[in-house]
Amino acid sequence: MIALGLFNYWAVILLMMVGFYTLIARGNLVKKLIGLNIFQTSVIMLYVSMGKVAGGTAPILVEGAEHVVYSNPIPHVLMLTAIVVGVATTALGLSLVVRINEAFGTVEDDELRDESL
């Protein structure tokens, strides 16, 4: 039952594999980016679930109360940055895809490979 108790990690691994598989196996550049996004999101989930303290509340100072259990805010803050990075990567990737489409007329990996030769 220990394995099930860590279901959040199972979810993370599942997502990660889905993303990674899409990234590798798909030939469409946009789909690759989607895979990359899922992959990165899984990491975000990993961090966020890591920061959760069982029974803890959101880490906002509660006035007057003593001995309040807070969740760890740092992983969340870190993931804020990771999200920004993810957005930037996606935006840059998509803009590259748009320009590739304009330059080559396709966004399929195998067709691009033929074009490049």
Binding site: A88, A91, L94, S95, V98, N101, E102, G105
Partner: peptide
Amino acid sequence: GVMVAIFYAFAGRRRL
């Protein structure tokens, strides 16, 4: 600025 710039970049592009 960046969000709107991304929006402009994609929305403002002419269709192929």
